[in-house]
Structure formats: C-alpha cells, structure tokens
C-alpha cells in the first residue's frame, strides 16, 4: 500500500530536522538577547522596570507556549498583518525563551555574595560597572550549566510550531504518518531524533555542572 520505505521515511524526517535545529538555534539566540535585557530590568534599581519585567516573566511563564503561538499566529492576523508560521514560531519561542532565561539568570545574579557588591561599591564602581566587571562575569560562570540545560526545553518547544503549520520534525512526522499509516514507526523515529538532539545537551549540562562544583 505504501511505497515509502523505512529509509525514505527516515530521510524525510532528517531533512525536516534541519528546521527544528534552525528554529531552536534562532529562538535560543534571540531569546538569550531579549532575556539579558529582561534580566537587567529585573535586577535594576528602577521600581517600574522591575515590576514590568516581573509581569513579563509571569505572563510568559504562566501561560502555555501553545497559547502564545496561537496568539502570534492568529491574533496578529486579526489586525490585518499577515504572519507566516516561521515568524510566529520565531517570535513566540523567542519571548517564551527570554522569560525563562531571564529568571534562570536572575537566580545566578542573586547567588553572588553580598560582599562582592559591597567591595565593588566601596571601590567607587557605579552600578553598571559593578554589573559589567564584577557580578555578571561571575554569574555567567554559574549560568552556563542551567542555560545549556534549558536549551533542551527550547528544542522540545519547537514541536508545538507544527500545530500552526510550520514544517519541522513533528509536522513532518504527522505528514508521513498520514501517507504511510505507520504511526508506530514514524513517531518512534521522531522521538529518537528528538532524543538524539536533546541528550547531548543535557549530558553536557550535567558535565558542566560537575566541573563547576569541583572548581568551587
């Protein structure tokens, strides 16, 4: 009934995996940039900035990523602006990632001992100089492991983009299943590919964590 051999299925899935990887990378990088800005607002001395950034984080952490995708894809279209699945997925994942990264990094900044702030303050450094030269370099070191760990969530999060029609790994799986009617084979392969993407990341994250503990 089907001319789709195992190898053709696998080949098509792997081709679609490129889009999963690309979307993950782009969302992670742009989410990291936005996340850094949100972090700076979150730990700043300005009350308004702190409240706004807290609200931002709560909204994106407190609603399903799927809803955020829908809002970008369908919601924006209501205003007459055509949004491609690509752009909607990119925007939603970026904002979602930035909220989580900002919160992870805030924990890292706050784990820097108070004495570091006091010592640099006593040396007449301004708040910005303290951040740039004393606090962030130390927080960055602590942040590497949980950040790499979170990248796994981003990779898995891209699967939701399939629902708004973005053809990545999950969507390709669905399409292949529709023509081959071999769901077990197709989705097992899909799962294995996701695992192959995520496992090295979480493994690397654990390794970094271990190395950091030894260094301290």
């Amino acid at each position: 009934m089907s001319d789709f051999s195992f190898w053709i299925i696998l080949q098509n899935l792997l081709l679609a995996t490129r889009w999963t990887i690309l979307l993950s990378l782009i969302a992670f990088v742009s989410g990291g940039i936005v996340g850094l800005l949100v972090l700076l607002a979150r730990v700043s001395h300005g009350r308004v900035l702190r409240i706004l950034s807290l609200g931002y984080i709560e909204v994106f952490q407190g609603t399903p990523l799927l809803m955020q995708l829908f809002l970008f894809f369908f919601g924006v279209a209501l205003f007459g602006i055509e949004v491609s699945p690509w752009v909607a997925a990119w925007l939603a994942l970026t904002l979602w990632t930035s909220a989580f990264l900002a919160e992870i990094w805030r924990g890292c900044v706050e784990s820097i001992p108070k004495g570091q702030w006091e010592a640099s303050e006593s040396l007449a450094l301004s708040y910005g100089e303290q951040m740039r030269h004393v606090i962030l370099p130390q927080a960055l070191r602590i942040a590497v492991a949980p950040t790499v760990g979170f990248s796994v969530q981003v990779v898995k999060g891209t699967a939701l983009a399939s629902i708004i029609g973005f053809v990545e790994l999950t969507k390709a799986g669905t399409m292949l299943n529709n023509v081959t009617f071999r769901p077990f084979l197709v989705y097992t392969l899909v799962a294995l590919i996701y695992f192959a993407l995520c496992f090295p990341l979480s493994w690397y994250s654990k390794r970094l964590e271990g190395r950091l503990n030894v260094a301290r």
Binding site: G115, A119, S120, Q138, R141
Partner: peptide, 12 residues
C-alpha cells in the same frame, strides 16, 4: 578605602 572581614576579593 575599605577592607572587609571576609576579604571579598573578586574570585574571577
């Protein structure tokens, strides 16, 4: 200038 009990050197 100020010197602290816990040194507070910048470890990095």
């Amino acid at each position: 200038g100020m010197v602290f009990q816990q040194f507070n050197l910048f470890p990095h």
